[in-house]
Computed example of a mutant assay.
Amino acid sequence: MSDPFGLGTFAGGDGDPFPGLVLGGGERVLDLRAAFGDDATTLALLRDWDGTLPRLRALAAEPAGPVAPYADVRPLPPVAPSGQILCAGANYFKHVRQIAYTFMRQGGDERPESAVRAEAEDISARRATSEEPYMFAGLPSALSGATDDVVLRGPGVQHDWELELAVVVSRGGQDIPEEDAMEHVAGYAISNDISTRDVMQRPGFPMTDFLMTKNRPTFFPTGPYIVPREFVPDYRALRIELKLNGKAMQDEGVDDIIYGVERLIAYASTVVTLAAGDLILTGSPAGNAGHHDNRWLVAGDVMEGSITGLGTQRNRCVAA
């Protein structure tokens, strides 16, 4: 096996996007247009993943084409914002316990601490015995790059972070068996599902509004690049960490996940037809703003997100 590498979409000094191979542990980027043609895109490479991957391994061993320092390029969303984004909700045990506890306390539940926490534990345990995961759709227009600003647009002021492991689909299909699901995975990336909590439920309208809550422009910082599945032998061994202005807010292992990647792919493919380049966000672990005394995002904040071996995001929050 070759040394680990990443695949992403970048912009150089001229601003033109190009597919790039990330080498040297994130130190250099090889412009793949020299090898795959001037019209090459990351999405096109994913659509022919079985043919692409061996060529990427060879290029990682012997780079052929322009190579730039990683610091001299701007990471864009790894895949052009045109495919589907499917997001798993309430998919980490500890996170579900925190959500349930916060919901009960904010709803005026005055029972003793032990009783409220016991019910939150019971709610979390029941998630694992549910028949199906909970998933919702995101919009590609909300994608942004790993170093882009996040624009805190209103309405709503309770802007929250949700750093997640994202799965990048290489081979589409419908009704994919769980035991075959990993053969449809090109690799993994980082995504941050920014959410505005105080507009999640409309007053007098008993439904959740995820369009308003989660799908504003820049609300899905993703990347900086995709790491092929062969370099992540056990995604459950990864660790997710988000720092806000240098302070750790999320720091959890993926092993706390309720429905794993295999189950999410199998379930999603019973609802939609998956295609190469689609993103499946696997859910956020514990440590959102509600757990930190409702410390919502404000202009000037800097989020730094990392997942083991998948690079780092650094996004500044700005006012609209």
Rank of each mutant, 00 (worst) to 15 (best):
D160A: 01
V150A: 03
G277I: 06
G145P: 12
N245P: 05
Q98W: 09
F219Y: 15
A71H: 05
L244N: 02
M1F: 11
R74S: 03
V185H: 09
Y235V: 14
R202E: 10
T312L: 12
A299G: 10
H184T: 09
K94C: 02
T129W: 02
I85M: 12
H95L: 07
G8C: 05
Y259G: 00
D14I: 05
R47G: 13
V185R: 03
P140I: 09
Y235R: 07
F93M: 03
F220S: 06
R127E: 04
G246S: 08
A186F: 00
E110L: 12
D209L: 05
I265P: 04
E27D: 14
C87D: 00
G253T: 15
V261S: 00
G311C: 08
D209P: 11
T213I: 01
I85D: 00
M200D: 00
D256G: 13
V157M: 01
V168A: 03
N215V: 05
N294D: 15
P221H: 13
K94N: 11
P17I: 08
V67K: 03
G24W: 04
E241R: 15
L7N: 07
M207S: 14
D180V: 03
K243W: 06
G145S: 12
C317N: 01
L143T: 08
S170H: 01
N294I: 00
F219V: 04
R57P: 07
T52E: 07
A286G: 14
R55Y: 07
I226Y: 01
A125N: 10
T52R: 04
E113R: 13
G204F: 06
W296I: 05
P19M: 07
G187T: 04
R127M: 14
D39F: 08
